[in-house]
């Protein structure tokens, strides 16, 4: 599949947050005053001004305390729930892979936030007219914040000093992910994002369980838009059948009432 993917190899991440900073700088997102949570994580989650956060965790591995880090952002699903949930087309999936937000179309209903299986979209709660906030994959149809559309890597990938992230076509990225897993027993035998929610463009491999960082486990492997489609596909049928039936019943019972009245009158006359 020729969509642009990123493989994040969590075993290579040192938690330096260069990616988080690069993201803020490239996208002109305001910074906050640090109030560290969970060791050195700040902010604790992505928010209205933060597309990506590096989660810092102290955990046990082979009986020893170890530190591990995970960069979290929108996973850019192959079949995004948010895109299917948006009733104004403010979220759209591009052919290259990024799921892009078009603020001028947004009504602010926040259904995308609920629909996302990874709870990615966040909201500018402090604004009078808030926008949804989520990683745009450095893809900007208006050009200003565009990197990927111009053939560059996303700002975060470009900024990483440890080659934690590699950027390329999904097929090759996925093959590389499994090569690494199969070539080294330290890895968890799972590529996060390979099958979750029908597959995502961002893929993760790790040597500690993904739950450590708050990755949601047990996500359905069926693309979420299909669940909705299974219901919505009946709409035309219901309109035609139920609308037709209502019309028939209306005409039939009305006529029956009239006939009843006429016969009633006849009886009265004959009586």
């Amino acid at each position: 599949m020729l969509t642009l993917s990123v493989l994040v190899d969590l075993t290579r991440c040192t938690g330096c947050k260069a990616c988080q900073t690069a993201c803020k700088q490239w996208n002109d997102l305001p910074a906050g005053i640090p109030e560290f949570d969970n060791n050195l994580t700040f902010p604790s989650k992505t928010d209205g001004n933060t597309y990506t956060v590096v989660q810092h965790r102290v955990t046990k591995k082979d009986g020893q305390d170890v530190m591990r880090f995970a960069k979290m952002q929108c996973l850019h699903c192959l079949e995004p729930a948010c895109v299917s949930a948006c009733f104004a087309k403010a979220l759209q999936k591009t052919a290259e892979g990024p799921v892009v937000y078009y603020p001028h179309l947004c009504v602010g209903c926040r259904y995308c936030m609920l629909a996302c299986p990874f709870n990615v979209p966040k909201y500018e709660w402090d604004e009078v007219f808030p926008l949804i906030s989520k990683c745009q994959y450095c893809f900007d149809p208006n050009g200003r914040y565009d990197r990927v559309g111009r053939g560059q890597k996303p700002a975060c990938v470009d900024s990483c000093p440890n080659d934690t992230m590699i950027f390329g076509n999904r097929d090759e990225i996925l093959k590389e992910a499994w090569n690494r897993i199969n070539g080294d027993p330290k890895y968890v035998k799972h590529v996060y994002g390979e099958k979750e929610a029908g597959g995502t463009n961002w893929l993760y491999i790790s040597d500690v369980p993904f739950e450590t960082f708050g990755f949601r486990t047990g996500v359905t492997e069926r693309p979420l838009p299909e669940y909705t489609h299974d219901y919505l596909k009946w709409t035309p049928t219901v309109i035609a059948a139920w609308g037709g039936l209502l019309t028939l019943m209306y005409l039939y019972t009305k006529r029956r009432g009239e006939v009843g009245k006429e016969q009633g009158q006849d009886k009265n006359i004959s009586a």
Binding site: V83, S84, A85, C86, F87, A88, K89, A90, L105, C106, V107, Y111, P225, T228, H229, Y231, L232
Partner: peptide
């Protein structure tokens, strides 16, 4: 907006 920008995949 949804009157003109049709996100018809959405419930």
């Amino acid at each position: 907006r949804p009157f003109v920008s049709w996100g018809y995949h959405s419930v």
